[in-house]
Design a protein around this nucleic acid. Structure first.
Length: 428
RNA sequence: GUGGCCUUAGCUCAAUUGGCAGAGCAUCGGAUUGUGGCUCCGAAGGUCACGGGUUCGAGCCCCGUAGGCCACCCCA
């Protein structure tokens, strides 16, 4: 048992797994460029108040999952690791006066988030999100465009069976009245409520709607629906979002129980789900509109919408769905030598090839030639460059490890020969 | 934060009713001089997660802790 290990809920991404994340990150970059987003990096920690005020004091994320940093005695400020990216990005929007940029400001980031949760497969205390935020456009069309972008990410990543769930959770005009109606409804059925649900009723009645308790199924099916209680503006917005999604050919399902966990959401809420897999971590991503958040964090009232997609879960589902991990970048050639002690010779040849931008490994292990060739094979190298007596008149053996053939090449021609083989190999 | 199951070599797993910790894969080395993949031989690798307890004796039984997994809570 090692003395030290990765903290609970964190893990090391070993090269094979890291390669999958790399591929997803490159896809995110490529996709957001196509949609006109610009990358942004905000700190991994913020003043605690950014999250408390932005996300909401009574949310689970803030109440029990926030990774608070131990306060220093010489600083009055308190800090917390970011549990999600939106609050920090909106803080940056306000701080840098982005309301003077052409609107909407479309920003994207990908990086680690932190929540002090109890870990499970697909649920970590440090996890990665690909995030997109469009700030400054109130219209329903941008909602549809954002949702389509997320949907396309899964499609191009190769995830099968992703469902788009959408809902509208109203705005400050209509939601309070709906919550009152909903609370009254549940109070009328208090005797039928499981104990845990009774507690939640007083804190956040909306949450009862997406309860997974089977005893709640019947009650929830008959519960008043928010979509029937939207104000005129919210209803029109939701209608238009759906119309745009349909026009774009994005398949979706209206899910009246979808309410999302963070306070800042208004109107459009959506989630990306994958069905038909073991385990409960089926939510691959989600987001929504947050028209009140910019003002909440000290800016002038500005609408916004965005989503966060969990890369850990995408990688997990891809593996479950049988996707081969990304191919490793095997060296084009390994420089080996008949004289195990001539590390200088092997390094010099490798160095010259690397200067020509070739992917080359030098065998520095001072083992006999046979072992060096064996290792080169296992490496997946295409060629072995063998240094021997021929070096005296400026030649080396170039061995094709797959074909088993070998020929004499002048050192002066080596880089050009290998580069040509690389091109042939790549296009062949 | 609640409940349940699990933890033996780097990985996947064995180990009669409590009686001297093993295999496969991987790693490293050998099979006569400068040629890999197959094969053969060998080496290294363990505080049986950690800490207590019961016992002549614990990988195995009991308690605690940590970590993982599962279900809640909630979410990505």
């Amino acid at each position: 048992m090692p003395t030290y290990r990765a903290p609970r809920g964190t893990r090391d991404l070993l090269p094979d797994e890291r390669a999958v994340f790399d591929r997803l990150t490159r896809l995110a970059t490529d996709l957001t460029e196509r949609y006109g987003y610009r990358p942004i990096e905000t700190p991994l920690f913020e003043q605690t108040a950014v999250f408390e005020r932005g996300i909401g004091e009574v949310t689970d994320v803030v109440e029990k999952e926030l990774f608070r940093l131990a306060p220093r005695t010489d600083e009055a400020e308190s800090w917390a690791l970011r549990p999600e990216p939106t609050a920090g990005i909106v803080r940056a929007y306000v701080q840098h006066g982005m309301q003077t940029w052409p609107q909407p400001v479309k920003l994207t980031t990908t990086g680690p988030m932190f929540r002090y949760d109890r870990p499970q497969a697909g649920r970590y205390r440090q996890f990665w999100q690909f995030d997109v935020e469009a700030i400054g456009d109130p219209g329903p069309a941008i909602d549809a465009e954002v949702i389509e972008l997320g949907h396309r990410f899964y499609a191009e990543a190769g995830v099968q069976g992703v469902e788009v769930l959408v809902n509208s959770i109203g705005d400050p005009v209509c939601r309070p009245a709906y919550i009152a109606t909903l609370t009254a409804y549940y109070r009328g059925h208090l005797a039928e409520l499981p104990a845990t649900e009774k507690d939640r009723l007083e804190r956040n009645a909306l949450r009862l709607l997406d309860s997974k308790d089977p005893d709640m199924a019947g009650l929830n099916a008959a519960a008043p629906r928010i979509t029937d209680h939207l104000c005129e503006a919210c209803a029109a917005h939701f209608d238009s979002v759906r119309a745009h999604l349909t026009a774009l050919g994005v398949p979706f399902r209206v899910e009246p129980g979808l309410v999302r966990g963070l306070d800042y959401y208004t109107r459009t809420a959506f989630e990306f789900y994958v069905s038909g897999r073991e385990g409960q971590q089926q939510a691959l991503g989600g987001g929504g509109r947050y028209d009140g958040l910019v003002a909440l964090l000290g800016g002038k009232p500005t609408p916004g919408i965005g989503f966060g997609l969990g890369l850990d879960r995408v990688a997990l589902v891809l593996a479950e769905q049988g996707h081969a991990p990304a191919a490793t970048a095997a060296p084009l050639a390994v420089v080996v030598g008949a004289d195990p002690d001539d590390t200088v010779g092997r390094l010099r040849v490798a160095s010259r090839l690397r200067a020509e931008r070739l992917r080359v490994r030098a065998d520095l292990a001072r083992r006999k030639l046979g072992r060096q060739l064996e290792a080169a094979s296992k490496d997946g190298a295409h060629f072995a460059v063998i240094l021997g007596d021929e070096l005296a008149d400026g030649h080396v053996q170039v061995r094709d490890l797959q074909a088993g053939s070998q020929r004499l090449v002048a050192l002066a021609d080596l880089a050009r020969e290998l580069a040509r083989a690389e091109t042939t190999h790549r296009h062949g």
